[in-house]
Design a protein around this nucleic acid. Sequence first.
DNA 1: CTTGAACCTCTACCTACTGTAGCTTGTAAG
DNA 2: CTTACAAGCTACAGTAGGTAGAGGTTCAAG
Lengths: 141, 141
Amino acid sequence: MLSIGTLAKRTGTKVQTVRYYEQIGLLPEPGRTEGGQRRYGDSDLDRLAFIRHARQLGFTLDAIRELLDLSDNPGRSCADVDRIAHRQLKEVEVRITRLEALRKELKRMLGECSRDTVADCRVLEVLRDHAACLTDHGQGA
Amino acid sequence: MLSIGTLAKRTGTKVQTVRYYEQIGLLPEPGRTEGGQRRYGDSDLDRLAFIRHARQLGFTLDAIRELLDLSDNPGRSCADVDRIAHRQLKEVEVRITRLEALRKELKRMLGECSRDTVADCRVLEVLRDHAACLTDHGQGA
DNA sequence: CTTGAACCTCTACCTACTGTAGCTTGTAAG
DNA sequence: CTTACAAGCTACAGTAGGTAGAGGTTCAAG
């Protein structure tokens, strides 16, 4: 049986985060010692490792909840799992596209700035006047 | 003089967001009507447009605060502005790199899944076993 | 003068955690 | 067996950057 600290260390998680996952129902309530300290088994370790890995791949906690539910029903079609992963892929691709547009605009902005006082700063000028932008960077960050 | 709703509409901001910016000191407290409603002038419009544009380029509110301060001192060197914009560019590039690694891993994961039940799902298997990953996607999301 | 859209304040909520305060438990050394 | 102290406990507050709603007031058009 593992203490919360050991579990956290083994999965690269912070202790508070483990308790947080329990609080939001992502991890089951573990057994306790007589004194009230949490004690974990191997299934908890596996589950937490799964969660952390999925988080590293950018899945939201809600998506992870779905994946864990699916994982608990081995007989079901894996189409749902596929759907969730595809959705995640799409989200990642959207974010990449958007960030690439930002990169382009920032580079252009920086490339044009040659004067030396704020009064003539091209960067500030671009920020002041959206119309000076070439790329669309409309929604969200 | 503009009402908060008009100001919001002209800058593509929500009314609550305008009040939020005022609350955190990013926008100055505007004049009020006798009845207590906010009334804005052109300088507020410019300032808010600047903020929104910088937000669209991914600058944090703290960075924007710095940029606005610099913008208010036209005689200063624009090196500081450059530094902030460069930092932002670097952050964007880091995020792109990271997301590209995620995309690669997600694609690989999805490409390998051909079985049809959750029990054999390659996606879940990869999530269960970090060692099955090729790419490093260690820190943050 | 009436109506109702738009405004007001205040508070709570979102994601995914992280940090702190003040107290208790577990464990290893002496 | 006692003591020291790391690690655990709960509860609450805070982070970024807003968003949503309740419950009440004001403005402006007709």
